[in-house]
Amino acid sequence: MSSLERRYGATERVLGGSPMGVLIRLVVMSFVVGLILTMLDINPNDIINWFDQRFRALTNLGFESIAQFFNVMVVGAVIVVPIWLFARVIKILSK
């Protein structure tokens, strides 16, 4: 096998077919998807903004959940820690 055949074979494996065939399929699929999105009045900025909003909503939800977790933990600790401390002191004094 020549180096050209090996290189072209590796390229075909990476791309999933011959480079020209893959390019033609991508152009046709891009045109069809673009036509459908244009008919639905959707532009690339709408799609990017939608992903950006979803990402921000997820991160905000995550950070709010973490903050809420610590708030709940502090509220519980206000009760639990003094009781635990009191129980430890009683146990030490009773020995």
Rank of each mutant, 00 (worst) to 15 (best):
P44G: 06
N71Q: 13
F51D: 03
S18T: 15
V78M: 08
A77Y: 10
R13I: 00
N71V: 09
K95R: 15
V28W: 06
A77N: 11
G17K: 04
I36S: 05
Q68L: 12
I24C: 01
A67W: 10
L58T: 00
V22R: 14
I83H: 08
I79M: 04
S30Y: 09
R7T: 06
V74Q: 14
E64C: 01
F31L: 13
L4S: 08
L4A: 11
I24V: 14
L23R: 11
L61I: 01
L26W: 06
M73V: 10
R56V: 10
G21D: 15
V14D: 02
P82G: 08
F55H: 07
V28L: 15
S94Q: 12
L58P: 00
L58G: 09
V72D: 11
T11Y: 08
L40N: 05
W84H: 07
G62K: 06
M39L: 14
I92E: 12
V14R: 08
N49M: 11
V28Y: 09
R54A: 09
S2K: 07
I90H: 05
V75S: 07
L35M: 08
K95N: 10
M29D: 12
K95E: 12
Q53T: 11
S65C: 00
F31Y: 11
I42G: 05
S3A: 05
G62D: 08
D46K: 07
V78I: 15
F55M: 10
V81R: 03
V33D: 05
L93I: 04
S2P: 06
D41P: 00
V27S: 13
I66N: 06
G17C: 03
I83P: 04
L23H: 05
I92T: 11
V27R: 15
V74L: 14
I90L: 14
S30F: 09
P19F: 02
W50N: 08
V75C: 00
M29E: 13
V81Y: 11
I47G: 01
L40H: 03
P44Y: 05
L15I: 04
R6I: 04
P44R: 06
M73Y: 10
S18V: 03
V22F: 01
T59M: 09
L85F: 15
E64V: 03
G9S: 15
G21M: 04
M39R: 09
S2I: 01
G34R: 06
G21A: 11
S94V: 00
